[in-house]
Amino acid sequence: MSPRERVASGRRLRMPRGVSVGVSVGLVAVPLVVAVLGPLLPYDARPGLPYSPEGVLGTDGLGRDVLGLLLVGGRSALGMAIGAVVLAYLIGGLIGLTAASTRHRWLDEGMMRPLDVLLPLPSLLVISVVAVGWRASAIAITVAVAMVNVPTVARLVRAAALDAASGPVVEALRMQRESWFTIQLGYVGRSVLGPVAADLGTRITLAVFLVASVNFLGLGLSPTAPDWAVSVSRNREGLLLQPWSVLAPALLLVSFTLGFNLLADRLVHRSRRLVESAR
């Protein structure tokens, strides 16, 4: 390729930004694999003295093996966050799609207006209250995290779906007598997918943060739970004595959120480019 040509197509060449997809996926995959497969591993965690260097990663403040804790602590840390986002999308997505596709204005307004009112509720506040009310219940925290995300998800899905559903494409498809399913899933659904995928990354990060913050504050799971965020909180005085007891769970959390952030960033760029090229 000649230098001049490179200048001409420079915009496209530079687009693969920063870190490659492989790294992002790897960052997400490592904690995910640990969380999913960890509890299944036949790892023999032997208790020892507090903050001792015994074992692969030493022990924590209660003398528990850090690696053993890591292997079982991911399910709650990531599971609650992912569960909350899935739940938020099930409820919020359903509300958004229904509001966008209905021909009855009252139904649309009736579903979206209450959510507008809920938007300014401080999320950590709601979750804290719920978490304390049903102390140590992972399900309650998951539901609470999902609930604070429902209004934004519903608005996003509604806006994206309405954009697609109100355009002439849907009319053209109706003119061709395409079935309701083909139109809703094949076209409207696919149009919503782009913004949703981009949002999913940041939303999962946010959910991980919320769940972890509640647990860190001691308002969520029991202080002896093996959860990664709880571990960071419990062992923070021991950071200098036995760094891995804090850094290992922290790194797994950060790796997960960082990977998702990078993927989301890429998706945002891709969907924007799609829109631009369509103009």
């Binding site: 920063g18 990060t205 991980v208 943060f209 972890a212 913050s213 860190f216 965020a229 960071v232 909180s233 923070r236 950071l239 804090v246 922290a250 959390l253 950060v254 959120t257 960082l258 998702f260 952030n261 990078l262 960033d265």
Partner: peptide
Amino acid sequence: LALSAIPDFVIAV
């Protein structure tokens, strides 16, 4: 992007 992926409490600790 990297900074915003680190939870507050990890930075604090």
